[in-house]
Design a protein around this nucleic acid. Structure first.
Lengths: 347, 347
DNA sequence: CTGAAAGCGCTTACAG
DNA sequence: CTGAAAGCGCTTACAG
């Protein structure tokens, strides 16, 4: 099926040329006769030769691997995010002749990352999630190794790509307020995630833009909600307090909230409106959902990888690039007819 | 922070010994004086030297990478499965000094896998999902490269690891039948997945063991249910036909089924029972769920990786290894009090 | 346009 | 116990 480990030397010998020539024919670097190149390429084609990238790497002091660090701890809400991210990254890498080395870290164990780096197995790294005090980030910061972070960071040094969560949340919240909501609540997850803070800022932006407390707006913020029970408790309280609309920071929380509302038999359609980030399949058939935001996560991953590749190629890149989003408003109450209505994007 | 790319040569020179000696001190291979080794190791420690694994690999004709192929098409039901799988694999690999090269394939594009293989970037491959007619599998079958498949296959050549789905489904179904269910239904996903067929077999095993049609049992099987709509349609029909219990092949389908039952307002608690494979968080707070099966997916991944590593180490391994499961019966109707009750395992 | 040679960082017979 | 040398498969100045 495949010639047994053909090497550049074998080809050189078979064609009575030097290894240099073969190398040049393949790489396209250096001058070489048209006729000679043709002969080499023909032979290569016919014998299904493909160069040993490891050896190529050694000679060029490269690995052609990019390290991807993924959180090893579970969070259903983010699963589909990471999958799409991975897909975007691996496609962009693959297309550029790079491979993706997977590295899974937890909050107290980044040994896999360390191994990959100290063993010289990657040319650069992509962080797919960043915490406020991020161990992988701190680790990489001390090295000479280039990396880019998906998600925003306080660290102004790091190259980062993100969706514009702040603007997205501002717009989403603003739209809801415009529709006459006065008592609005925000429910979010882990406060150590930068994204949680970005969204919070956007939420506050919107409130302020609409006049804040002076305009009669009342807002409640509950963070660090990690499971269904906590969500339920929060919802109970919010219901008691007369909240009109709950904005959920992710679809997992959103589901919890919707379940809690249903369980409490408190929610006749339209009584309490719920909005969410993302727009995953988890939330299909949820009539009480009035609005959501759509991000193109695969593009996010792709972008991150492209940035890293450009850095590896010694090109200059922007410190921070923000990707757009889409706010989807559905019919405000009862079962939405037809599909969600996509509106506007940003940047 | 870190000595600039220290090499084995630098150390040899600094210590006035040969590179051979340094290499031996580190690898532990070959005879070497206790005193000499100590000196080398001390220097290495002090200067934070770590060998270039790529170079090591070239010299030994290895990459110390194992390729992991992941499906690139989305299926919520399986997301958490793959994450746990990845974690198991990456931990086992990492522990053995290997890294995981990620490769994403779709049904009509396995180019990432091909690239990794033809570029000589992996020593072996782990398939995390296998279809009945599996392109990656067929591709690897034609190569000399060792691989192991997670999930069962018809291919008797391939080394495979799997949970014992057939037995699990047999036991689950059997338990339900023992409780007096007569009209039972099975709802499953893609028929091209081997696992779908295994479960179907287990379902039939159980029916037969209880006397089948002769014993008054009526069974309905609906496969290739891919989305909420299709599930809903199936459920409507099953309800009309007087089905007493629905066994769902995965938790995504299970959720669809539960939603459909609720929407139809047809299910007073206990009227139609629902059982599911897996036991993901998606299914928390679902009182109508009467039974489920629990698999240890991380161990599955770990096992697969260990098997591959043993093959790479030229050890002989079993063609097929089946891992256990746990059937969890909850209180049969109404809200289950306390936690689910784990019962028995297998093999 | 082409080649001989040194080099990437490591390993491993082969001698001593 | 230790070292000189060849080799892993490729690239790249340096000469010609």
């Amino acid at each position: 099926m495949e010639e047994k480990n053909l090497t550049i030397g074998d080809i050189a010998q078979a064609l009575q040329v030097s290894k240099t020539t073969v190398s040049r024919a393949m790489s396209g670097k250096g001058r070489i006769g048209e006729e000679t190149r043709r002969r080499v390429l023909e032979y290569v084609e016919a014998h299904h030769y493909s160069p040993n990238v490891i050896a190529q790497g050694l000679a060029q002091n490269k690995t052609f691997n990019i390290g991807m660090v993924l959180p090893g701890d579970y969070n259903i809400a983010e699963l589909s995010f990471f999958q799409k991210c991975m897909l975007g990254i691996s496609r962009a890498a693959s297309q550029a002749g790079y491979d993706v080395l997977l590295t899974m870290v937890t909050e107290d164990d980044i040994s896999q990352l360390e191994r990959a780096v100290t063993n010289h197995k990657v040319d650069g790294v992509i962080l797919t999630r960043t915490l406020v005090e991020d161990a992988p980030m701190r680790y990489l910061g001390g090295k000479e190794l280039p990396f880019v972070a998906i998600g925003s960071t306080d660290d102004s040094e790091a190259v980062q790509v993100d969706n514009d969560h702040r603007s997205a949340c501002r717009e989403l919240t603003g739209r809801l307020l415009e529709r006459g909501v006065h008592r609005i609540a925000l429910i979010g997850g882990d406060e150590r995630f930068v994204v949680t803070n970005s969204r919070l800022l956007g939420f506050r932006d919107a409130l302020e833009a609409q006049g804040g407390e002076d305009a009669g707006l009342r807002a409640d913020v509950t963070l660090n909600v990690g499971n269904a029970e906590e969500a339920e408790r929060a919802v109970e309280r919010l219901v008691r307090e007369g909240t009109e609309c709950i904005v959920c920071m992710d679809d997992f929380l959103c589901e919890c909230v919707l379940n809690a509302l249903r369980t409490d038999r408190v929610n006749t359609p339209g009584q309490i409106r719920v909005a969410s980030f993302y727009d995953s399949a988890v939330l299909e058939n949820r009539p009480t959902l009035v609005a959501s935001i759509r991000f193109d996560v695969e593009t996010l991953g792709k972008k991150a990888c492209e940035l890293l590749l450009r850095i590896l190629n010694s090109e200059a890149v922007e410190r921070r690039t923000l990707l757009g989003y889409e706010v989807c408003m559905r019919e405000s109450a009862g079962r939405a007819e037809g599909r969600a209505i996509p509106e506007s994007g940003a940047r």
